[in-house]
Structures are given as C-alpha cells and as structure tokens.
C-alpha cells in the first residue's frame, strides 16, 4: 500500500470532491486546471489509502459508491478547515513594509520622504494625515514611523531631532515679501497640530503679515485657492532655491513608538535616519 502523506491526502481529497461534484473525470480535471491521467491516478491512490472504493466506473460514466457518499461530508470539512488554516496563517504573516505616516504639511516633500523608504528594504505603506492623528495611530500601533509637524504633543512616543526646513512664499504676484502680502495664507487645518499652527500664525504677524489664514484640508485644495488668487501659500523651498529667512520655516520631526512597542521587523533607527536625510538633503 502506498504511503500517502498529509499533503497528498488533502490534494487527493480535492480530487475526490471535484469528481463527486461533477460526476465526470474530464470535467473535474478541467475544474482543477489539470489533465485527467494524474487526477484518475490520484483518486485511485486515495482509494488504496483508505481501503474503500469511492467511485464505480463503467461505460455509462462515474457513480459515487455508498462508501464514497459516506466519506464525502468529512472530506469537505477537511478541505474547508485546510483553507481556513491557510487564511489565518496569511493574516498572521508579518509584513516588513514600513507603515509610514506623513503630515499633510509636507507638500511636495512627501515624494522624497516616501521614495527614500520605498527604494530601500521591504518598501513602505504611506498614510497622509494631520500630525495629531498620526501620533494617535503610532500610539495605537497602526504606524511604525511618522513625519509630523513640530511642536506638538508626543507623549509616549520618541522623537528625532527637530528639522528646520526653509520655506518659500507662493502668491499670485510672484515672490512678494510676507509684509507686503495682503492675501491670507492657505494652511492645513489648525486641528492637525494646534501648537505648530499657533506658532506659525505668531510668526506671520511677527513678519508683518496680518496673520489671517484659510484652513484647507489638503494640498490640492490649497493649490486651488492659490490658483484662484484667493490666498498665498508658504511651502517648503525646493532644494538649492534662494529662500527668504523672514519666512517662518517648516519645523518637522520623525516620531516613533516607544522602543518597547516597536515592531522588531522594522529597523526604526535606520529608517528615521533615511527620512531625516531625505528631508534635509
């Protein structure tokens, strides 16, 4: 008697159930995307293994035997359980991708930040949101790292150095000074990071601007307001561009869960370093 391993048993049970369902070896082989000879061979091996005949084969076709009928429900159960086992294992499969939060304030720097992690290691799954929300996701274990506006409340998390990014004024009439700009500034909503928002408005007033702002939920909306000539915008200056030191800078930092709550699959320090380099290069 042939020794049938556990894996073979499940495979042969699939054959058995397929033939029982279609009452035809050819149709069953097609359903299983295989040819008929190995299917017939497999069923015969299963019959030998179990010591009972499962099908009667004659000129009129295939009929399931009373023994086959009796074993069919358990066979279906075994296959269902095998699938359930695989599904659960798939859910437990640990992803090595970095779940990265990116603050909406980063504007075009978002590309550089996401790319630096996408290009190395196991890739990245980005989430764009307000800094307060991203910090909450980190605390709940739903993110591995986040680039957020500074300053903000980051209790329970660890933070990298404060990165002070130069900015540029974008308005309808080219590069006015902030003091000469009479338009409100389009900014992310205050609730995205209240202390940073308040600090930004204080800096606008310090520079001679009225401090009036329009809170727009995302960068596209801010672009649209700018295009309409309704607002100006202060965005991170492109690499190497001349920037006005009177403009309030964009302060950001990379935050991570407390070391005890980090996923061991992720190299947080290396990823943080890469992000900081991408932001300041």
């Amino acid at each position: 008697m042939a020794i049938v391993s556990g894996m073979d048993l499940l495979r042969h049970l699939r054959f058995f159930v397929a033939v029982a369902d279609s009452r035809h070896f050819g149709d069953a082989a097609r359903d299983l995307a295989m040819t008929q000879p190995p299917l017939s061979q497999g069923v015969r091996k299963l019959e030998r293994h179990l010591g009972v005949r499962l099908f009667d084969r004659d000129s009129r076709g295939v009929r399931i035997t009373p023994a086959g009928q009796a074993l069919l429900p358990l066979s279906r159960d075994l296959l269902r359980l095998a699938i359930a086992l695989q599904d659960q294992a798939a859910e437990l499969l640990v992803s090595h991708q970095v779940r990265l939060g990116v603050a909406t304030d980063l504007d075009h720097l978002t590309d550089a930040v996401v790319r630096v992690l996408a290009g190395t290691g196991d890739g990245v799954v980005p989430t764009v949101g307000g800094s307060v929300e991203l910090a909450d996701l980190l605390r709940d274990g739903l993110l591995d790292l986040a680039v957020v506006r500074h300053p903000g409340i980051i209790d329970g998390l660890t933070a990298g150095t404060v990165l002070v990014l130069p900015t540029r004024l974008e308005g309808p009439s080219g590069s006015d000074s902030l003091a000469a700009c009479s338009l409100p500034i389009a900014v992310p909503p205050r609730h995205h990071q209240p202390p940073a928002h308040d600090q930004f408005i204080d800096a606008l007033r310090r520079a001679g601007h009225s401090g009036s702002v329009v809170e727009a939920p995302d960068a596209t909306q801010r672009r649209a307001l700018l295009a309409a000539g309704n607002t100006a915008e202060i965005v991170p200056a492109p690499r190497g561009a001349v920037h006005d030191p009177a403009l309030p800078p964009l302060r950001v930092r990379v935050i991570a869960p407390h070391p005890n709550h980090r996923r061991p699959e992720i190299d947080h320090d290396r990823a943080t370093q890469a992000l900081e380099q991408a932001l300041t290069r």
Binding site: V132, P151, G152, I153, D155, P194, D198
Partner: peptide, 13 residues
C-alpha cells in the same frame, strides 16, 4: 475629557 481637550488644544500637558 473636557479638561484634556482644552489642554490638547492649547498644546500643553
């Protein structure tokens, strides 16, 4: 919860 909201909005612990 009220007190926490006020503190959070002001950016303080």
């Amino acid at each position: 919860h009220d007190l926490e909201q006020i503190a959070r909005d002001a950016g303080v612990r």
